[in-house]
Design a protein around this nucleic acid. Structure first.
Lengths: 197, 197, 197, 197
DNA sequence: CATGAATGAGGCTTCATTCAT
DNA sequence: CATGAATGAAGCCTCATTCAT
């Protein structure tokens, strides 16, 4: 399965390079299968799609959660980092928050079933934990900044907001009438209101 | 297993009564098991709790969705009817909407896993449809009234709102920091804002 | 699969009878497979031989040990009971012991791999326990009687003797030069000697 | 992975030395793992302990039996040789036999699972053969000498005795009440009796 | 030669669903 | 009509063994 754009002359010290490439293939296949059949898809299906045996998957990712985390790690990291960038660049803390949440929704919205798997009771505790450990602090910073700037009412916890946004992204695409973005926007608008009427 | 002390000539009426009673037992057992183990609980568990064979369940409820719908039908009906009552009784259309949504959240929040099962891709299409068919019109009426009264911005669809509220109820109880009610409230507050900043 | 010797007219209250018959078929098949491939044989193989699905076996015998114990229970019981009979009937306590041990050897010797499975570290703790719980007391009685009659040296424990005899029966049949009976006899002869020369 | 500081011209001798050293490391690791997890331990475990790849083990020892035999060869040889020594040195042929058997029991008793693996049906035919080929002749000599001296009854075959002793050593350590040595002693005492009562 | 990544057979177990009794 | 026994597909996971690097 040579990509063709490498000189065949210098395979040098492969071995590890080989395994690494394989891992990439695996992650790609897993991403596709997750998108299609959800993160609960049979390991066999992923193995088949990647053109490897099941053992290969178990070698690289002993548990399913390991695989899921690996599949989404890059994007989660990018999302986390974007939070800080946005806070520095946006017109206002609230605008930053909104843009950042949009980013998160974009991410979840394109991964069929990922939002579901984020549920803590879905058996993917590691996934749930990873996402929240990584993103809650960022969200918290954005929320605090917006609150300090007086743009939103205080008192909302980042953990709750993240889970709420995640939940709203569940089942996107099943019906064109349902667009999580509109609801997330409503949620953020709600933050601007004084505590209660 | 007829007891023999009924006239064999006219079992019709009593048989029906029997079957009905049986169905009630079934529904009760299913409700308990759903509450404990979620709506995905093994059929056997429900049969055992009801003290009947699995065949009996299949006879009465050919698909699992049929059973789930039957279990929650009363409460869905009550919720639907409450919408009209509230609209008539509340201080304002928006107050009615809010109270009604609270009712719906109360309902979902106490049924472990029900909100999850409402997802259209969860394999319980019948359940999903039933809930929405029955409640969306009510919600729509409440939304329209509030919009007409100028209490909320126009443009939000009842279908979307209902699904959003349902989604927010997923996973309640897994972490004390997550309370769907607060987020639902935020959502409703968001409706009061002008379309966008 | 009617046996033909039952009047086809009176299937009366079957159901349980059916299941019972099935259990017998299962036990028969398991006995054969155990004899052929040892007690570690794949469940599938037993199911196939019995002409049933694997689920049927799991229903009747949730764990493999349950199955093994069930397969041999009758014979273990018979063996245990024979101990008392022999003690009463034999010429001397030692003769009774010898005959009883012969019985036990006969039993083990015809079950390929059973002696192996009796090893406590073979993962069939339940089997190991069952055999010993049932037979050690009997053996103990026989040993005591022989010791009291002065026919054997005192001090040998029934547990140890039973395990020794069991061990000697391992691997019978693999080589015609090995006959556990001769060694067991040697063991019993050894009991007649004074403690040490 | 040649280090490069050896002359490429004459690697023969040093390569062999290398390979030998490697084999020693392997045998050491295997011995440890066998002691810990039995001779059925996963090849990987041995490879890991030796710090080599599994392929290396397969190269040196194509089958598992080859490895096991290699691991115990030294001790088996020593045991075999001890037979002759003892016969010359002991007070009587029977005393020599007894001491020699003790040696064998000591050997087996300290190797977790080795006695089990000696079973001819355990899939380690080579192991079984090696042990018996090497030790049966020795045992035979001792038996014959004792028989000639009139210390034991004639007629017992060395093959049978060796296997019997081996079998008695199976499962040692699983229960403090079971000590193979006592039973082996009984067996030897049995040899001193006249053929039958 | 050594490495260890990849393969895939093989065993296990759970349940939804059917159907004889 | 009710029962629950039987079925068997489906997923899971663990190594022994091969072979490209």
């Amino acid at each position: 399965m040579p990509t063709g754009d490498e000189p065949a002359k210098a395979p040098t010290r492969s071995k590890r390079a080989d395994a690494l490439r394989n891992e990439q293939v695996l992650l790609g296949a897993a991403a596709e299968v997750f998108a299609t059949s959800g993160v609960d898809a049979p390991i066999r299906e992923i193995a088949a799609r990647a053109g490897v045996g099941v053992g290969t998957i178990y070698r690289h990712f002993p548990t399913r959660a390991d695989l899921v985390v690996a599949v989404y790690r890059h994007q989660v990291e990018a999302c986390a980092e974007a939070g800080l960038t946005l806070l520095a660049a946006a017109d206002s803390p609230f605008a930053a928050l909104r843009q950042w949440v949009d980013l998160f929704v974009d991410f979840l919205a394109t991964k069929h079933g990922l939002a579901n798997a984020l549920q803590s009771d879905s058996g993917f505790d590691a996934l749930h934990s990873y996402f929240l450990d990584r993103l809650v602090p960022v969200c918290s910073q954005l929320l605090d900044a917006a609150a300090e700037a007086g743009e939103i009412r205080p008192g909302t916890q980042a953990y709750e907001l993240m889970r709420g946004v995640g939940n709203l992204c569940i089942g996107r695409g099943s019906d064109p009438r349902y667009d999580p973005r509109r609801l997330v926007d409503l949620l953020l608008q709600g933050l601007r209101q004084p505590p209660s009427p």
